[in-house]
Write a protein that binds this DNA or RNA. Structure first.
Length: 544
RNA sequence: GCGCUUAUAGCUCAGCUGGACAGAGCAUCUCCCUCCUAAGGAGAGGGUCGGACGUUCGAAUCGUCUUAAGCGCGCCA
């Protein structure tokens, strides 16, 4: 038997590579494609090398395929077929497929995890202004940002989750002003909410809290606005932190714009960039068109104020100065115009354009009874993350947000998310896990066979094959920053588990050998399902 | 006007970076619990991959053009 440390696909690639070498063609492993056959009549694995490189041989693809096949090492292969225009289909010996089971059981929670790469990645997400509750748009960014972080970390990156607080802009001024008016309202004084202030009930609640905590005389302070700004923001942030915590997300770093601006950081940055800056009508403009942008960007307005872009440059430079090799910003899709200007600014610092990667998240439409809704029935305000967690549950919410490619719009079907049935993909997957746990528990007195050598039923081998692709899926999801690949995988794996469960009865007291082997498969499947679910922040219940 | 994104089954989406008859899930229709959780399984119908041209042995995938939708283009954040 071959060494089991490697995936079968990689073994086949090597096998083909050496065969080609003997035929005088040198290819790297990356040039050789071996895929899991979608169609079982095409074997377990298939390769198109003969088609792809038939030119090198100046022979028809099928002849090339024959040549390659004649040089293959057949020790782990049951049979090989040449099909269609020249595909090589591999049928593996079943033990070479099933010996992954022992490896999964041995690695447990770490199955699929890559060794540390020593690469530091900063993932910035949510970064909502502390001026109100998180809404569903933030929630999708949160779910995706956190899932990306989990996946990268599992794939061996050193990940820091960061939240950027815009606490220096005039949003906070508006918050302070609104709070003062709401505070007056609490005291029974005449009040008038500022036009561009925050009119929501949540601000009123915070005003009440402030009154309860700090008393009725706050307006007599020297600078009540500063006070309300500061306290208000603190309370808002506290709320956001709590909501994120119930959403199962914990940030490593909260960065404050104010702190980053301190000590003349902006002025120093302007000095640093001076060769790329010109004046136009009293404003300072950054020549981003020298790099990737299609338009130069104002960084200092003619009235001397900074645009939003300016401190943001400082912030990104700050992040890089903290030693990160890679920055990832998870932003709403409406920020796409922002990508090239920020990259340009970083390039002025000598960074390559791809140190910063921006994941754009498309809008979420909340659907109920087949219709879109935006507002909460209870408060009349925007529908918040907190309400979503209450209505749909954290697991369903996180799964749904992540289940589609970030670049696409998402229709969030609340009815479906709440439904406890097979239509609901979250329950489908969790149920598969719970079923496995249930079997393992019922048979806890029976020894588990980890070799997999007795597995030969179709449903068993299908499941095994699915298990063996997990490591590959993780790498792809990591590379593409694509959590939805994980949920797709979860669904496929759950499918195979359910099929196996119905087709193959596991516990048979009269046939302990087969029972043991199937228990091994159950355990391995349970482990992989759990690991996959944890990558998207969804729990794997033992019982449902 | 310029730029970005999207277009695949009635609906919501995959399609592994060019391959073998385009796949799931909902929804519709059949069938399956004397047995480890039926919150499950097996099967059926449903598509000229927005349109046109091109590159290639081979295109949903790459290129150009075109149509439609969303978004961005301010000394806004």
């Amino acid at each position: 038997m071959k060494c089991s440390k490697m995936e079968i696909r990689d073994l086949l690639k090597q096998n083909i590579q050496t065969a080609l070498k003997e035929l005088g063609v040198d290819l790297s492993l990356d040039d050789i494609v071996v895929e899991n056959s979608k169609d079982p009549t095409h074997g377990d694995y298939a390769s198109n090398v003969a088609l792809k490189y038939s030119r090198n041989f100046q022979k028809p693809p099928r002849d090339v395929a024959n040549l390659i096949v004649s040089k293959l090492d057949m020790s782990s292969i049951d049979k090989v077929e040449i099909a269609g225009p020249g595909f090589i289909n591999f049928y593996m010996k079943s033990d070479s497929l099933t010996n992954i089971i022992s490896r999964i059981i041995k690695d447990g929670d770490d199955f699929g995890r890559s060794p540390k790469k020593g690469i530091k990645v900063n993932v910035e997400f949510v970064s909502a202004n502390p001026t109100g509750d998180l809404h569903v748009g933030h929630a999708r960014g949160a779910a995706i940002g956190d899932a990306i972080s989990r996946i990268l970390s599992f794939d061996g990156y050193d990940v820091t989750r960061e939240y950027y607080i815009n606490d220096a802009g005039n949003q906070i001024d508006h918050l302070g002003e609104s709070l003062i008016e709401r505070y007056k309202e609490c005291l029974g004084l005449p009040f008038e909410l500022p036009e561009d202030g925050y009119h929501g009930v949540d601000v009123k609640i915070i005003a009440q809290k402030i009154r309860e905590k700090y008393g009725d005389n706050l307006l007599e302070k020297d600078n009540p606005l500063e006070f309300f700004k500061l306290i208000g923001q603190e309370l808002e942030l506290e709320k956001i932190r709590e909501d994120l915590k119930t959403f199962n997300i914990v940030f490593d770093v909260f960065s404050s714009e104010k702190a980053i601006r301190a000590n003349g950081a902006i002025e120093k940055e302007i000095e640093f960039l001076k060769d790329h800056i010109y004046e136009d009508g009293g404003a300072k403009v950054l020549r981003t068109t020298d790099f990737l942008d299609d338009k130069d960007r104002v960084i200092v307005k003619s009235n001397g104020e900074y645009t939003y872009f300016m401190p943001d440059i400082v912030y990104h430079v700050n992040k890089l100065s903290r030693g990160f090799d890679q920055l990832i910003d998870v932003l709403g899709a409406d920020h796409h115009g922002y990508i090239n200007r920020m990259k340009s600014a970083l390039m002025m610092h000598g960074y390559k354009s791809d140190v910063l990667e921006i994941e754009l998240i498309q809008m979420v439409r909340m659907m109920k009874d087949g219709e879109e809704f935006k507002l909460s029935k209870r408060t009349g305000n925007g529908y918040t993350l907190r309400e979503l967690c209450e209505d749909a549950g954290v697991d369903a919410a996180r799964y749904f947000f992540v289940m589609r490619a970030a670049s696409g719009h998402l229709d969030f079907d609340l009815d479906l998310a709440v439904k406890q049935s097979s239509d609901n993909p979250v329950y489908y997957a969790q149920y598969a896990h719970a079923r496995l746990c249930s079997v393992l528990k019922t048979a806890s007195d029976i020894k588990i066979d980890e070799s997999g050598s007795l597995l030969k039923e179709h449903a068993e081998l299908e499941l095994v094959k699915k298990l063996s692709t997990f490591e590959d899926i993780v790498k792809v999801a990591s590379k593409e920053r694509a959590p939805y690949k994980i949920t797709n995988y979860i669904h496929e794996l759950a499918e195979k588990v359910h099929a196996f469960y119905t087709e193959c009865r596991v516990i048979d007291r009269d046939n302990l050998e087969v029972t043991s082997a199937r228990l091994g498969l159950c355990l391995a499947s349970k482990i992989v399902l759990r690991n996959a679910l944890s990558l998207v922040g969804v729990s794997a219940p033992e019982k449902m």
